[in-house]
């Protein structure tokens, strides 16, 4: 049995699901954020796998961009969390119910 594209995609999908699970069940904003990173990485993995098996380096360029954007996103996101914490003294989604009518 040869390891092929399918295996990588399954791993990527499972990792994505784990990230999704984290986003849904965890209540700490920072952990939710980490779960988001997991999902991003899962997507990256499938991009690299496609790039490898389709003989096209563009996929890897895309991953490079994703990593960069993710870095920027983490910076901004964490800054938001810090600002929020200053205002509300909490980083829990349950305490953030401004949207409730």
């Amino acid at each position: 049995m040869n390891v092929g594209l399918q295996h990588y995609l399954i791993v990527s999908g499972l990792l994505f699901s784990i990230g999704l699970l984290g986003v849904v069940i965890r209540r700490n904003l920072i952990v939710i954020f980490m779960s988001l990173e997991l999902m991003l990485n899962a997507a990256n993995l499938s991009l690299v796998a496609f790039s490898r098996y389709n003989s096209n380096l563009d996929g890897q360029v895309m991953v490079f961009f994703t990593i960069t954007v993710a870095a920027a996103e983490v910076a901004v996101g964490l800054a938001l969390i810090v600002a929020l914490y200053r205002k509300r003294q909490t980083a829990h989604v349950e305490d953030l119910t401004t949207l409730k009518f």
Binding site: I25, R27, L96, T97, T98, L99, K100, F101
Partner: peptide
């Protein structure tokens, strides 16, 4: 509209 981000998610 619970205002709970998790339920939105």
């Amino acid at each position: 509209q619970t205002g709970n981000i998790q339920s939105y998610t």
